[in-house]
Design a protein around this nucleic acid. Structure first.
Lengths: 183, 183
DNA sequence: TAATTAATTAGATATATATCGAAATAATTT
DNA sequence: AAATTATTTCGATATATATCTAATTAATTA
């Protein structure tokens, strides 16, 4: 669901010692002291790691008399793994990304301030962006005679013949008996 | 399988922008330039992220004429997610961890150089470590009379009565009609 | 109550790395 | 061949964070 939850999950596990802690807790519950001895780290360091894991919901502590017993939250681990396997969660991660940014960039790169084109892009990928933009200057369900088409295309570039041909070739317009229309 | 492979997987995804790249590539293949425009980062930065993802096997590049089209390796993603769900892979992450380190630490903390105990630990968890150590001084399948038990325990601590009681209480030894034996 | 002990928090340091700009490569178009 | 373009690599910088020691807190035992 939450994209920052996925990030927190990965960040929590992106450390060799935290991974080992998870591995150990998957077999048995341990205290901070025990983990510190086994991993040859200071208790304060272990405490830090455990708090990061706890913040991600991957471990929890139970006060056992004198000390804190930490245990693995296997359900959390499973639910995150399952999220990775689901088809919806990945696209959701990029939900707030501006997908049109590239098209806008191409448009600005190739356009003069008055809206005309500096040059016609040679690359297919960029030409398509430009063509999709140009075709918006034609209304739907209107059949344009060739001179009128040229007049509109001339706003963008003097080589109207190339633009006409590319628009048809790209499948954005169609032609029959000297008339053109959007598809 | 490989524990460092799991770590590489998590490190590769433990970054907000790399996660977004994965999210975008889960919908469509993109070039470096396109990703750079959409994420508002420099192409060199995107290239760096993609190389980290590629090293983890999560994306791959296909030379498409002029540019490189990157695509998501969904099979890799799935196999890693499945590894998280399997029961064996987690313990394997901690395979090289010294599980006895804590017991050794307790033993050293409470023992004098000659092997006798400074004090008998009050805490259950530590007392158990000491008792499991002491019981090794008794042979299996031998029935010891109480004076002999005391003689052996005296090597560890003068309060042999407490040690005797705790060994039986912990279920490490049993007693019947004045004789003691290991279980 | 005083002393011991486990755990956490705070502060400091050193390492890792995300990001950028510039340079180098590689491929394409003119 | 020269110029353009996409990508990668390199070097530098700034940020994040793993780890330690020291101090603090909380709980237990003597």
């Amino acid at each position: 669901m939450d994209e920052s939850q996925l990030l927190g999950f990965f960040k929590a596990l992106a450390d060799a010692n935290r991974l080992k802690i998870i591995g150990l807790l998957s077999q048995e519950n341990f205290t901070v002291e025990q983990l510190a001895a086994m991993l040859e780290l200071r208790p304060s360091t272990i405490s830090h790691h455990l708090s990061r894991l706890a913040k991600a919901g991957l471990v929890s502590a139970r006060a056992e008399g004198y000390y804190n017993l930490y245990r693995l939250e296997t359900s959390k681990l499973e639910s995150m793994a399952r999220q990775l396997l689901s088809r919806e969660s990945l696209p959701a991660v990029a939900a707030d990304v501006d997908l049109e940014a590239y098209d806008r960039k191409v448009l600005t790169d190739f356009s003069n301030p008055d809206g005309s084109l500096k040059i016609i892009p040679a690359q297919r990928k960029k030409l398509m962006v430009i063509l999709r933009h140009i075709v918006n200057s034609f209304e739907m369900d209107v059949r344009y005679p060739e001179p009128e088409v040229n007049q509109i295309l001339a706003r963008f570039h003097e080589d109207t013949a190339t633009l006409r041909r590319e628009l048809v070739g790209a499948g954005l317009m169609e032609r029959e008996r000297g008339k053109y229309w959007r598809v």
